[in-house]
């Protein structure tokens, strides 16, 4: 699974990244978590609120920072490849 965080390195974006890593570890899944901070690239995803979480090219979370537990539920819906 391909996981990307979109955001400008604000506090919320870092929180989302940390919680995503935590959630993935809890699920026992391995994935590289990339962090895109470039405005133009963020726009290319069609995201209008940051931070956002993208997994396998699909935007799963936008404009909020769910808890690690909720993120684990959301990430669990992404089929393993």
């Amino acid at each position: 699974m391909d996981v990307t965080i979109l955001g400008h390195g604000c506090k919320n974006c870092d929180a989302l990244e940390a919680r995503t890593v935590e959630a993935l570890a809890g699920l026992g899944r391995t994935a590289e978590v990339a962090h895109i901070k470039d405005d133009a690239q963020i726009a290319a995803y069609g995201v209008m609120r940051t931070p956002a979480l993208v997994a396998d090219g699909r935007v799963l979370v936008e404009g909020q920072v769910p808890t690690a537990a909720r993120l684990a539920e959301i990430l669990a819906t992404v089929p393993a490849t």
């Binding site: 604000c10 995201v47 209008m48 609120r49 940051t50």
Partner: peptide, 8 residues
């Protein structure tokens, strides 16, 4: 924090 992505 979302003004820029929103604007774009």
């Amino acid at each position: 924090c979302s003004a820029v992505p929103g604007f774009i």
